[in-house]
Amino acid sequence: MRGRIMNAVFARMQADENVFFLTADMGINLVEKIQQVFPSRYLNVGIAEQNLIGICAGLCNLGFRPVAYTISQFISHRCYEQIRNDLKLHDYPITLLGTSAGFDNAPLGPTHHIVDDWGAVRTIPGIDIYCPSSVSYADTLVDKILAQPRPAYVRIPKGAFEQPASRDDTLYLEGARGGPLLISYGSTVQTCLALQARHAEVSVLVCNRLRPLQADLVRAALQRHPSAFVVEDHFPSSGLYNMLCQFCMEHRLACQLSSLGPREEYHLKVGASAGYYHRLYGFDEQGIERALWGQSHALIDSPNL
């Protein structure tokens, strides 16, 4: 996914001399081509995320469209105040590319578990938020963002998923009538698609764009189902579960929402892969099956909310 997005950035830099790429010393084997071809619009600012955002703001002051790249938790947390004051307060159209999502970096420990990144960004108004679920969507994402005069945060999951082969911001994959609805984004969409392949009655709503939500499609999907399960590798209290609870209230929807995501904690025990944590927190395939059809799973009740 990262490679596809970086290819799209490169293509935009060829077409638009205002696009300026910056990295906080990340992206080995991804950024070199940009550096070689566009040396005057490439900057490695070093491991200094606060400075990264400030420099982006200064470049915006000169009319550039900066695209800033580093690991998701660093570009969302370390420089939160810079995003608030230097980016959003000035309505600078900076694109923040965050690599890795959820438990992509599972064995690296909790400092690298990205379970509260876009939820933090979401507290700042006016920043579009994307989490692509497939390479088809990733291919078009950079063009889509740079066509808008707004800042954006992109949470890029590891993996290069071919499905769903769609470029739509929101995608409703309807199952057999009357079945449950799973709502997801990013790499956990793959879990939902696997379940749908085994259980034809399952419907899946894919939200590649998390803010603004595509209200008409989301509302239509929620109106079709009396209950829905939000599957995400992010804390539910600041994630899509929370966002959809508010959405249902504001749109007077009766859909009963449940959360299938990580417990709101920073876990100290090592998991060798993301699957360890998905199993632990009950949002792997078996965990979701239990939630849908088996005994009530303890984690459905949205802990710590």
Binding site: L43, N51, I53, I55, A57, L59, N61, L62, D86
Partner: peptide, 11 residues
């Protein structure tokens, strides 16, 4: 301010 100024100078 200084990071922003650096961005302006680079720009």
């Amino acid at each position: 301010g200084l990071p922003v100024a650096c961005g302006c100078a680079m720009g």
